[in-house]
Structure formats: structure tokens, C-alpha cells
């Protein structure tokens, strides 16, 4: 098996639609780490992220024929993952709290002297944001995607992404102690 495939994402998706079994594997190899990171940073719980990623990618695997080419394959895959994350967040919000993985039970602590603890505090704080702020903040500020790409993934105007990021940052600044007096 060649480990590197020179075909474009679109060519791979077309090959998958034509029945080539390994074409979709190559797409996952190319984009899987980033898709996983988005799901993990949005949902925080690795088990939830794994469930969502599997659900999303199996959906994409089955429904590749539904890809119309309005966005890039990468954007399309991210959109499916993000939509599944939103579904999961809504589901979690609707069910009674069970402990681990629920944002309102996550302690928000911070120890600036310890890097790992600081990072944990960032991830904890992210979990306190509403989904409509958390997802753009993850895409733009954590993953480093351009605002326009985040807007394409979320299918909202660029200004909406900027506004949601701005509001999320204000809230995070309070949670992380950078803006303690103002709160969030």
C-alpha cells in the first residue's frame, strides 16, 4: 500500500464514490487528526469525541454521494463533525447530569506556575462557553483556522464568527482570571 497518495481530496472522494475502498482511508489519514482535535476540544471528553467522530465519519463515508462541491472536502468533513458535536452538546444538555464530562461540574482552577495545569484550566474554561461561542473559539483561536474558513464550516457570515469569538474571549478572559473584576 502506498503511504502517500498524490491525488487531491476531491479526487479521493470521487474515487470513494466509485467504490475504491482505500480512498476514504486516505482522506481520514489527511484530515483525521484535525477533525479529532476539533471534536475533542469542543466536547472535552475523549469518549464523547470518539463517538462523535465515528458517527460523523461513518455518515460522510455513507453519504459521500451527497457532497455537492460547494465547499472543499475538508470544510465538508469539518462541517459534519461540528454538526455532530452540536447534536451531542444539545443531547447532553437535555439529559440529567451524570458527573464526568459535564461543564457545570468542571472545576475551574488555575495555577500560572504550572503549564499543564494552565492548559487544563483553558480546556475547563472552554467547556463553560455556550456552544455557539465555544465552537468558533476552538476553530479560530485553538485550531488556528482563518475566520473565513471557520465561517464556511459553520455556514454563517464572517462577522458572526468574529462576534461570537469576541464574546467567547471576554467570557474566557474572566474565567481564566485575566479579567477577573469584569467577570464574564
Amino acid at each position: 500500500m502506498p503511504l502517500l497518495d498524490a491525488r487531491s481530496d476531491l479526487q479521493l472522494l470521487e474515487a470513494h464514490r466509485s467504490g475504491e475502498r482505500r480512498a476514504f482511508d486516505e482522506l481520514v489519514r489527511r484530515h483525521g487528526d484535525r477533525l479529532w482535535a476539533v471534536a475533542l476540544r469542543v466536547l472535552r471528553d475523549p469518549e464523547d469525541a470518539a463517538d462523535v467522530l465515528q458517527d460523523a465519519l461513518e455518515s460522510a463515508y455513507r453519504r459521500a454521494a451527497g457532497f455537492r462541491g460547494e465547499a472543499s472536502v475538508s470544510t465538508w468533513l469539518h462541517r459534519i463533525v461540528v454538526n455532530k458535536c452540536v447534536d451531542r452538546i444539545r443531547y447532553d444538555r437535555a439529559r440529567p447530569p451524570s458527573g464526568y464530562g459535564h461543564p457545570h461540574r468542571v472545576p475551574v482552577g488555575r495555577d500560572p506556575a504550572e503549564g499543564a495545569t494552565t492548559r487544563l484550566a483553558v480546556l475547563d474554561a472552554l467547556a463553560h462557553l455556550p456552544a455557539d461561542q465555544r465552537i468558533p473559539v476552538v476553530l479560530v483561536d485553538v485550531m488556528g483556522y482563518p475566520v473565513a474558513e471557520a465561517a464556511a464550516i459553520l455556514q454563517v457570515p464572517v462577522g458572526t464568527v468574529k462576534s461570537r469569538c469576541a464574546r467567547g474571549r471576554v467570557r474566557l478572559a474572566g474565567l481564566l482570571g485575566h479579567l477577573r473584576e469584569e467577570g464574564a
Binding site: 483525521g32 487528526d33 477533525l35 479529532w36 482535535a37 494552565t118 492548559r119 474571549r169 481564566l176
Partner: peptide, 25 residues
């Protein structure tokens, strides 16, 4: 404060997909 917040978010380490998740897929 906003700049510090952005910096902390940008410093979140990358999260490669665990092999177990790839196997599940």
C-alpha cells in the same frame, strides 16, 4: 486580557488522533 486569553488558547497542544480511535473508525 484578551491578548493573554488568545495566547492561552493558541498554546493548547495539538491532539493527534489516538490509534484506538483510528481502529474504531
Amino acid at each position: 486580557a484578551l491578548a493573554a486569553t488568545r495566547a492561552e488558547l493558541a498554546a493548547v497542544p495539538p491532539a493527534p488522533m489516538p490509534t484506538a480511535v483510528a481502529a474504531r473508525l
